[in-house]
Amino acid sequence: MQTFGSSSAGMYGVVVAVTFAIGLWVGSNVSPRRPVKSEKPHGQAIETVAKGTEAAGLLHGNDEDNESDEDQVSGDLSSLKIGPTEECTMVLVVREDLGMTSGKIAAQCSHAVLACYKSMLSSNVPLLRRWERAGRPKLTRWCSDEEILLELQALAQSLNLCTRSIQDAGRTQIEAGSRTVLGIVGPVDLVRRVTGTLRPFE
């Protein structure tokens, strides 16, 4: 004669077995959700604005400010070799003449960091790993205008550094297509050759 305890244990085992079988069936027969395709061009990102009403609008799909990394021209990043003792850094060069707010600058710098990261991930993983091991150092510098920013970009590309500039979509503070921030990553000595004379943020 079975006791109440052994009967309960048997029922529990049956429930566990049935639940496991259902889980296996669902896992093997239900296909994962596919992400919804965006109507936006590839590479655009949303800037979160630090204002209550605008942030609320963003949550409801009203993205006020889209940025795109339009700069796809670069030097041969894959050919950049790093010595065993070389330190790596990232410098974010911000245009001073645009008069961007601190929030806007932060958003644009974030886009530049991500663009540089993706570039290193696809073209020079050793550089990316060295930069990560160094603690992902980032410095910010001012440049006076777009002409200077383009000159810096050309020089960085000639040295095969990781170089990405960000162009604004023009939905908030500045004109569409304006280059706002230039991101440069590489060995410290090479990066200094490009940005060493620029004024740091105070």
Rank of each mutant, 00 (worst) to 15 (best):
L198I: 02
T195Q: 03
G75V: 06
T48F: 13
S28K: 15
D97M: 00
V73T: 13
V14T: 12
D76I: 07
G186Y: 10
I82Y: 11
R171S: 06
A176K: 14
E39L: 13
L59C: 04
E132Q: 10
D63N: 09
A112R: 11
E146H: 01
Q108K: 03
K118M: 06
V185F: 05
V191D: 05
V15T: 10
P35K: 04
P137G: 02
V185Q: 05
D65W: 04
S110T: 14
E151N: 13
A45T: 15
I148M: 09
K40S: 14
G43H: 11
T85M: 10
V191W: 11
V125E: 11
R130M: 02
C116K: 00
S7W: 14
A134Y: 02
F20C: 14
C143Y: 02
V18T: 13
Q157A: 10
L77E: 05
I82A: 10
S38P: 09
T180D: 03
V14P: 01
G83L: 05
L159D: 04
F20E: 12
T19C: 11
G13H: 05
L152V: 04
G196S: 08
N29M: 12
Q167R: 15
T19E: 03
A112F: 07
G196P: 10
N29C: 08
D97L: 00
I166Y: 08
I46C: 05
I22Y: 09
R193W: 03
A115Y: 07
E39N: 14
L77Y: 07
L80H: 12
S102M: 01
I46G: 02
Y117T: 10
S68N: 02
G170V: 03
L198K: 08
D63A: 10
V16P: 02
L77S: 07
Y117I: 00
E86A: 14
I22R: 03
T180H: 07
Q153H: 04
K40Q: 15
V91A: 10
A176R: 13
H111T: 13
K104T: 01
E132R: 02
R199S: 12
C162R: 11
E64S: 03
L152A: 06
E147P: 00
G183D: 13
N124Q: 05
V15R: 11
W131I: 00
V16A: 13
A45E: 11
T53R: 01
L161T: 05
D69F: 04
E151I: 00
G183R: 12
S74F: 06
G13K: 11
A176S: 09
E70H: 09
R179M: 08
S144K: 08
L80F: 07
L152D: 08
E147V: 04
K40N: 15
I46H: 08
R130Y: 02
P137N: 02
G75R: 14
G57N: 06
I166N: 06
R33C: 07
H42V: 12
